[in-house]
Design a protein around this nucleic acid. Structure first.
Length: 103
DNA sequence: GTGGTGACGCGGA
DNA sequence: ATCCGCGCCACCA
């Protein structure tokens, strides 16, 4: 079952459109595992570096990049988002503009 | 078995 | 805005 759960979460992340973002909590919710935001982060942790899955589109509920400033991953995520047209200011994204909540 | 640690989130002070 | 506490658990020492 762990296997299926992991796949459902990854599938949900893959559904986030290019140029849009979703929070860890939303991904968990959409995947059918409400309240399991931490699990989403734990799973995405395996995909650092070049992205087989668009992990850069997943942010905290307040629109901030989860990694602290100074962490190389923080800048990497900001760059990847910028490359697909998502404006990142101060490590934060305007969820009103780029937020995605399923379709 | 036990305790600490997270790519979290929310409500309250 | 910021800080804290708590709920959530998978993972690891």
């Amino acid at each position: 079952m762990n296997r299926l759960r992991r796949q459902q979460i990854l599938d949900t992340v893959l559904r986030i459109p290019e140029g849009r973002v979703a929070s860890y909590g939303e991904v968990a919710e959409l995947a059918g595992w409400p309240g399991r935001a931490r699990l989403v982060g734990r799973i995405l942790k395996e995909f650092e570096g070049p992205a087989p899955v668009p992990w850069q589109r997943v942010l905290r509920a307040n629109g901030c990049i989860a990694f602290p400033e100074g962490d190389p991953r923080h800048d990497l995520q900001a760059d990847l988002l910028g490359q697909e047209g998502v404006e990142v200011r101060g490590g934060r994204v305007d969820r009103e503009r780029y937020g995605w909540s399923g379709d």
